[in-house]
Design a protein around this nucleic acid. Structure first.
Lengths: 224, 224
DNA sequence: GCTTGAATTTCGTCG
DNA sequence: CGACGAAGTTCAAGC
């Protein structure tokens, strides 16, 4: 990894065209040739960049300035004109073991599948990732009366999720072996618009409490 | 901006929990206190990070190792344990003038509006961004026979775009002054699922050639 | 300030 | 390898 602090201007021509006027920035060149241009603020996203695989060519000019040209196979080009270098160092980092995550949608689905009673007393899970021709339904349940319920789980419940569940319900209700199937939209947080749309379509909304679900899981583990 | 190359392990507890085992990485501390942890590969996204506004507290331990704790108002926490520092430098960058972009979807819309004949012979644009109560339709056209057509334009045509257009069509077809309104889903690239859904709903799919549209535009400019 | 839709999205998984 | 969906999405424009 090479770190360069330099006064530079940057031009990108590819999926769009973009330009950065001259200013002092961090230029980060990774081992795979990818380049990140960072300013001293904003978020984790660079001002501009080139993703790997790509190649960097350094072309010194007569006037002492340098030009870096980073290209990839698709013909996208990142051109960096360097006026003044304030820092330049290289470092060996090696391969990173990578990030271990916990607590995303997949986890929510597992927890809810193990605690279907959160959705209603006497409810049970028929199966997770119930397959349909347009994709898998997160949970297929049966309520206390034995009626089928399709459950769509999201971390954040927005309008797209309601549309998705609606498509599943349309399809499943055409299957005489399954119909009638009702719907539950379950999420840690449900946006008002999504709730209105869901309820207008007769879909019940359930707000999930991740910590509570995890707690129930712990209790269950302790009991058995 | 402070650049630190160090052997470290990282833990994040916030919207999820995540852990990075010990390895050598770049720690980037921006002027606003935000922190980025980068490895020597991957894309522009850091392995882990804390977005501003946040505060960094450095707590030296007895055994020579240091611990950085970065927290924000929401109670999220990024904890970095540093075993060995290989590089540490600070730099004044100043405020960045920022990125100037030159559009994608907006540009597509302009080009298509100027070349409606791409959609069909004798077609004309009634207006761009035609307002409805649930949002603007990209293009409202009339075909050669004078029938109304709503056009949804995307760079990448996916299922969401079809849903969006469907909602517009449902609404517009309730307006007796407008109905009947048919739909066209236009994109540089249309995913198979989106195409199937669109055509199932009687929406025509049109793949746009950005370069060709631009070329037509040039020709037109030269003629007048 | 909140909501909505796009992104040079990136990143994973699954077929 | 492509397609599809999630993301600590982030980002920008509208209201």
């Amino acid at each position: 990894m090479r770190l360069v602090i330099a006064r530079c201007s940057v031009d990108y021509v590819g999926r769009l065209t973009a330009h950065l006027p001259p200013a002092t920035r961090l230029l980060l060149i990774k081992a795979d040739g990818s380049v990140l241009v960072h300013s001293d603020g904003g978020s984790y996203k660079p001002l501009n960049w080139m993703s790997p695989p790509c190649t960097l060519k350094e072309a010194p000019a007569d006037d002492g300035t340098a030009s870096w040209v980073v290209t990839n196979k698709a013909g996208e080009e990142l051109r960096i004109s360097i006026e003044e270098v304030l820092h330049d160092s290289s470092h060996e980092l090696g391969v990173d073991p990578g990030l271990q995550k916990d607590g995303v949608e997949a986890h929510l689905q597992i927890l809810l599948a193990e605690n279907a009673e959160v959705l209603g007393e006497g409810w049970r899970v028929v199966r997770r990732e119930y397959p349909t021709s347009i994709g898998p339904v997160d949970l297929l349940c049966k309520d206390a009366a034995g009626a089928s319920v399709a459950v769509e789980i999201k971390r954040r419940g927005e309008i797209d999720g309601v549309e998705q569940l609606t498509r599943y319900l349309d399809l499943m209700n055409r299957d005489p072996l399954l119909a009638p199937v009702s719907g539950v939209f379950a999420a840690q947080e449900i946006k008002p618009q999504a709730r209105v749309l869901a309820e207008d379509r007769g879909i019940r909304c359930v707000v999930l409490d991740y910590d509570e679900l995890r707690g129930m899981d712990d209790k269950e583990s302790r009991l058995f």
